[in-house]
Design a protein around this nucleic acid. Structure first.
Lengths: 285, 285
DNA sequence: AGCTCTTATGAATCATTGA
DNA sequence: GTCAATGATTCATAAGAGC
């Protein structure tokens, strides 16, 4: 088995990334802390300060991303004073000045969005997944995310849970991603730029910022096995866990020590699972 | 029967609207010509000139809209040079400077969007429906667009568990109480800000038309019967037709004479249908 | 295995109250 | 007067229990 690394680092990504070389990562996928006026939450960055806070970090992302790499930014602006805040769209404009190409905007449709009722607003059921690139010639494995005709979200992303991925990657090592073209025919289609995924709500130690299916989808789409994935605001470690399952190396950074240990335990648990699978497999030979 | 008007005017909305008083319309809903470098299409406004072209017109919209009214702008930026153009998000920022509130952004998910394949891009299956208002106190008839609840409600309300009546928020710090007895007998739920509507096929006379369900939904949501609806880029007349069916007065403006006659024939046809209905009704008395 | 039923809970937002 | 904390409202989903 190829050795896959999952590094979880504690610290501010602005500083931690200075230890990484230029043009290193194939994919950066993250869900940063959203702007919030409350000071007790993580970061507690005010909407008015958000762009200013983000730009030095996106500069490091730009430096450490390969020219063929992609940066996926999952974000949604909050409501303030009855209006949508504008810091996200201001950020897009500023990042372009920094040298990024704003290639695409995916919509993540949150099927089970938070309930609520207000006199002048419906429930917010979507978030942005902004795609940025350094060059027009970026890597994109469209075939790896092809879906059965019809309801691709149900048949593919939801059902392809932990055990399925482990089974595929540890036993059918030949490459689930590559040989999928055998199944391509009348039954498979390319997805669109609208992703339908539920947020994860189960009983877990900690809630993930985004469902694992989201980073998983972008990792399959924009990287190959053995590539390097970065999540500079890794939180509970969802991105690194997904990368590990898909045989990609990963770096996860978070400023909060308690999250770092949680994320580390996740990727270690996965290492252990892989070991168990291997033992079972060898016993059956 | 109440008399409902559907005025179709030929001309540039910038000029035509100067004949209308302040605070006149209850809803402005439109799908303007998108920026395009080709000059043979309507307008032919270059992406770089789009904001500059739009702002004097949105100024007229702001003037003629009632303080309780709403402006829905259906738009999507084009791809240019491998990137998403930024004129739409620049327009949002400029319109706020003009005095608009950017209240919400709805996503129109086009379920049967145009097929196609590109090496670095998936099909674009969504458009923005930007909601702007003059004040925070705008009219919104949420009940008029309620949708059937999911299957959840049927099984859910058969039997109420102990925690259902009052959820104990001692466990959760955020405090999240609920009283499920409020839901007994409820079959309809409020929608979210993601709209799932198929594009209409077959109506090829107008290039940038939206399906009638889209203006219809916003007309029901933001106006009452007898209110005034404006579409300043009415094209083939979809908005006026929808308004007429819902007993709202409407004004549709288009610069292209051929579209104006098409739109006029549509609303007249509807007038004729109404007349026929009335005749039948009177004959049956 | 397969169902059905039960239960927890989530990047939410607004009006009100308190500092 | 500005700003921060609290209460009220609400629905789609997954996991778990039971048969």
């Amino acid at each position: 088995m190829r050795q896959i690394e999952a590094q979880i680092k504690q610290g501010d990504c602005l500083e931690v990334l200075k230890n990484y070389p230029d043009d290193f990562f194939d994919l950066i996928v993250t869900s940063p802390p959203y702007a919030d006026s409350r000071s007790n939450t993580y970061g507690g960055i005010k909407p008015s300060k958000y762009v200013e806070w983000f730009l030095p970090r996106s500069e490091q992302f730009l430096r450490t991303l390969k020219p063929t790499g992609t940066f996926i930014l999952n974000i949604k602006e909050r409501v303030a004073g009855g209006e949508r805040s504008t810091y996200v769209i201001e950020l897009i404009l500023e990042m372009r000045k920094q040298g990024w190409l704003w290639t695409e905007e995916f919509v993540w449709h949150k099927k089970n969005c938070h309930p609520g009722k207000w006199p002048n607003r419906f429930r917010d059921a979507w978030e942005r997944c902004l795609q940025f690139n350094k060059t027009k010639k970026f890597k994109m494995n469209q075939e790896s995310v092809m879906v059965p005709m019809g309801d691709w979200a149900k048949t593919r992303l939801k059902k392809l849970g932990k055990n399925d991925v482990v089974r595929f990657d540890s036993q059918v090592k030949s490459g689930f991603g590559k040989n999928i073209s055998n199944w391509v025919g009348r039954t498979m289609a390319y997805p669109s730029n609208v992703l339908h995924m539920a947020t994860e709500t189960g009983n877990k130690n900690h809630s993930a910022t985004f469902p694992e299916a989201l980073p998983e989808w972008f990792i399959k789409l924009f990287t190959d096995e053995g590539d390097w994935v970065l999540d500079p605001f890794v939180g509970s470690g969802t991105t690194c866990e997904a990368a590990q399952k898909l045989n990609r190396n990963s770096v996860g950074i978070d400023i909060r020590a308690e999250y770092v240990s949680l994320a580390q335990s996740k990727v270690k648990e996965y290492d252990y699972m892989l070991f168990e699978e291997r033992v079972k497999y060898e016993q059956n030979q």
